[in-house]
């Protein structure tokens, strides 16, 4: 059975100009111990998906219009704030992009870790402190005993993200949601944090949902990938297959427009146009105005995610034509 099972989830926001859906009809699951990558650009709804799962969206203005989020036999969308607090921590934990604003600047980091443990467990002060030190050691903070009494501003960005991970691990979560965990970090630090996340998965067996705009991060970490565009899942696939045989024109475009570290290309293949704002999404397929393979029919129907190969699904009505066009010698 899946650890987390999301079915037909639609979340909307009330705005000045009426209700706008941020994510639409999202369905996917995460298995225990799996790393699921969710890729998308701004406005794709990837962060809203995570925040909906965590119950962290302020309601209003946010509103879950339909769907369910099953975790541990419970539908998280139906739980009260009190019940959700019991899930957050030991059930699902989350880390964010900006480790500076996620930590409270006026408390020592040891205190912040111990507070999280205390919220879910009764421990003696001695045992509490030992646990916190262990956690800091586990996330690779050097001389953790001494670091316990540091304030967040005394740490570097990478170390702060490690502390955030330690806090997330404090209650041994079964699912860790990492929302752009390395976007604010330099590339050498990014590599360290990604290594840490994968080591922790191997060691603790927790599942990780890693949300990113960076295809490289996905290639490096994920077992399975969801590609989101303008609030909808457009493709879902095991990671190797996604990079070997992407189906959706948007996924292909994303893979093509990133320059290579190894060889030269005279010109980058750009996706024309820009991302639609949530309130101004086109009719039919959301990607249609930017798609090289769009046909009149694309404007009429909203393509649904359908399986094209085992575990590999895409939401595009033109896949046969695209495959034929690709097969033709240019």
């Amino acid at each position: 059975m899946s650890l987390l099972e999301i079915r037909n989830l639609t979340t909307a926001f009330g705005t000045e100009s009426g209700q706008v859906t941020a994510i639409e009809d999202i369905s996917f699951g995460i298995e225990p111990g799996e790393i699921l990558g969710i890729v998308g650009e701004s406005g794709s709804g990837k962060s809203v998906t995570a925040l909906t799962v965590m119950g962290l969206l302020p309601r209003p203005p946010a509103k879950i219009l339909s769907g369910s989020v099953m975790f541990d036999g419970q539908d998280l969308t139906k739980l009260s704030e009190r019940q959700l607090q019991k899930i957050r921590g030991p059930g699902i934990a989350m880390i964010f992009q900006e480790p500076m604003t996620s930590l409270n600047p006026v408390f020592r980091i040891g205190e912040q870790i111990m507070e999280t443990i205390r919220a879910h467990e009764r421990l003696s002060p001695r045992a509490l402190r030992d646990r916190a030190v262990q956690l800091l050691a586990k996330v690779g903070i050097p001389s953790p005993e001494r670091r316990m009494d540091d304030y967040p501003h005394q740490l570097s960005g990478g170390q702060r993200q490690r502390v955030m991970i330690a806090i997330a691990l404090a209650c041994n979560p079964r699912l860790l949601i990492a929302d752009e965990p390395t976007t604010a970090l330099d590339v050498t630090i990014q590599a360290q944090i990604l290594d840490l996340l994968m080591d922790l998965r191997d060691e603790l067996g927790m599942a990780i949902m890693i949300i990113t705009h960076n295809m490289g991060v996905v290639a490096e970490t994920a077992d399975r990938v969801l590609v989101m565009y303008a609030g909808r899942i457009v493709e879902q696939s095991p990671v190797e297959r996604l990079f070997d045989a992407p189906l959706h024109p948007y996924t292909r475009g994303l893979l093509d427009c990133v320059p290579s570290l190894e060889h030269d290309r005279p010109r980058l293949v750009a996706i024309p146009g820009s991302l639609p704002e949530p309130a101004r999404r086109p009719s039919g397929c959301r990607f249609r105005p930017r798609c090289a393979h769009a046909a009149p029919a694309c404007a009429e129907t909203l393509p649904i995610l359908a399986e094209r190969a085992p575990a590999h699904a895409a939401a595009c009505i033109r896949l046969p034509e695209i495959a034929a066009a690709m097969a033709e010698p240019a």
């Binding site: 750009a270 024309p272 146009g273 820009s274 639609p276 704002e277 101004r280 249609r288 105005p289 930017r290 090289a292 769009a294 046909a295 009149p296 694309c298 404007a299």
Partner: peptide
């Protein structure tokens, strides 16, 4: 090719309404 094909247009073909 139909008019929904944007490739021939400038990159800002998907420009927003004023």
């Amino acid at each position: 090719m139909s008019e929904v094909l944007p490739l021939a247009a400038a990159p800002e073909a998907v420009e927003r309404a004023p």
